[in-house]
């Protein structure tokens, strides 16, 4: 019975990872850009929420309404005026620039907010749980996060497949030059993609802040889990990202069940195994075709 519980908790943990990974997956899928500042941007959003809670006495849930659009605007500007300069034949410039950005954000947060551990109080929901009988129980908040992750990923998938903006993104991803012959300004399309990605990362950062504690330097760890989820699922595949998050989450909880010190290690091992045996990921489009 405890194994059923372990897997269940792993799946729910996967919801967090998938939520973090959604934006990373979108940015990679649309412009082949690996954003190493992804985790730090999530922490930035969480601190934005902390400020609103402290200064304006908002409830952390309400801060989503303010922080998510702000992060989207930041994402548009960031892509339009900085990251677009790095998009090109090789991914190296974008990796260097986002790595630098990661350091700048983390250290600025350290300066402003110190190295103290912070958290966001979600309210009664954070301790509530749903009994599934037979001693099985799942946290209500975890269920909410999982549902939000599915909603965000479904939303991204629908946006990509059903809307004009999504068609523009797929066209730019396929062939930038030909896209410009259709009158598409790829700089604007890329900026929209990053705006959406940072909106999702804001949601992820605030939920993570409500679920556990974070510091100014938590970003790289978020990045690693998100990155592993994306790679396990298959680069650029939206549903693969959800599956990748779940695989990673289940691997971690099973590892933790065997030996509580090995939780993180087990996730990394599964990630390495996927890289070794299915380097395109479990669910990439290329692997299916």
């Amino acid at each position: 019975m405890s194994w059923v519980n372990t897997v269940l908790q792993g799946i729910l943990l996967g919801g967090y990872y998938a939520l973090f990974a959604a934006g990373l997956s979108l940015m990679f899928g649309v412009m082949r850009l690996v954003n190493l500042a992804h985790g730090d941007l999530a922490v930035l959003a969480a601190f934005g929420s902390v400020v609103l809670v402290d200064q304006l006495h908002m409830n952390p849930w309400e801060t989503l309404i303010v922080v998510v659009p702000l992060m989207a605007v930041l994402g548009y500007a960031l892509q339009r005026y900085l990251l677009n300069l790095t998009v090109g034949a090789t991914p190296l410039p974008s990796i260097l620039v986002t790595f630098g950005l990661s350091i700048i954000i983390a250290n600025t947060l350290l300066q402003v907010f110190s190295a103290d551990t912070r958290g966001l109080q979600a309210g009664a929901i954070s301790t509530a749980s749903i009994q599934l009988g037979d001693g099985l129980a799942v946290g209500t908040f975890d269920i909410v996060v999982f549902a939000v992750a599915i909603a965000v990923l479904s939303g991204l998938q629908l946006m990509l497949t059903r809307t004009t903006t999504g068609r523009l993104m797929r066209a730019c991803s396929d062939d930038r030059q030909t896209a410009s012959l259709m009158g598409i300004n790829e700089r604007h399309v890329y900026a929209l993609a990053t705006a959406i990605a940072l909106a999702t990362v804001a949601v992820a950062g605030i939920f993570e802040g409500m679920s556990t504690q974070f510091t100014a330097t938590s970003g790289p760890m978020y990045l690693i889990f998100a990155f592993e989820a994306v790679v396990i699922g298959g680069l650029g595949s939206i549903w693969g990202t959800l599956a990748g998050g779940i695989v990673l989450g289940v691997a971690q909880t099973i590892g933790g069940q065997i030996n509580s010190a090995d939780q993180i290690l087990a996730g990394h091992l599964v990630f390495l195994a996927v890289l070794a045996f299915r380097p395109r990921g479990l669910f990439s489009r290329a692997a299916v075709a």
């Binding site: 004009t164 797929r170 066209a171 062939d175 259709m182």
Partner: peptide, 24 residues
Amino acid sequence: MVPEGRKLFPSLSVEENLMLGGYR
């Protein structure tokens, strides 16, 4: 322009390719 080698967008359907042509 109809580019050499056609350069259709492979991840788009025929109709989506046409619709993109009418984007502007």
